[in-house]
Amino acid sequence: MNDQVEVRLRAALTEAGDTVQPVTLRALAPPQGSRVQVHTRLLVVAMIVLPLAVGAATLLRPTDRDSQLVAMGVMGMSPSRVLGPEDPEIAVYICEAQSPFRSCSGSHGATPQQIAAIEQALRAMPQVESITFRDQQTTYELFVEHQANSTLAQIVEPTDMPESFRLKMKEDTDWTPTLEAAVALPGVSNVINEKCISEYLAGDSDNSKCSVGVIFR
């Protein structure tokens, strides 16, 4: 019967296990590299990837052990990107696991079904001309490319990056309904009008109107 097999298996495993004794165990080395908590990393990433006009002073609380990194994030917020005429204007960010945004709280990131539903909903919008998906790896590569600060580039990992849909919009349409409808979709963390950001950087616009739904939890 299987009883006998169980007995032999237990005995064999026990004996194999006993070959490792505590006294001879190699000590665990203290972990190398970043001790920065994932939440802070994601927050910093969010601030840079999504060019948010967050008041730096609000963030910098000296008691926070990660405040230095956050400060780096704030400094890195001024993006160098200039939107070309062919570039998609709207970025719809997808909730990743442990996203720092309130719209994503309670989830472990958007599910594949949610992402598919988001795409479907975006494609159905009349103001949208075309849609592309930007994955974590691509976002990471762009991040590292734009991020002269190598310390930050070393700390973050591709999996920290949010995925996003990029919307190329039709000209002479009102984008507001798209922005508002997109941010309400389950699994969307927030929506950024990158054209608006680009204009803001050129001094032509008020940055406060460039993003929808940005609330950190």
């Binding site: 948010l52 609000t58 950190f216």
Partner: peptide, 15 residues
């Protein structure tokens, strides 16, 4: 734009 920054290092939010 509304930005709330409550989360960094806030105790009790996450065990």
């Amino acid at each position: 734009m509304e930005v709330e920054l409550l989360s960094i290092g806030e105790p009790g939010v996450r065990a």
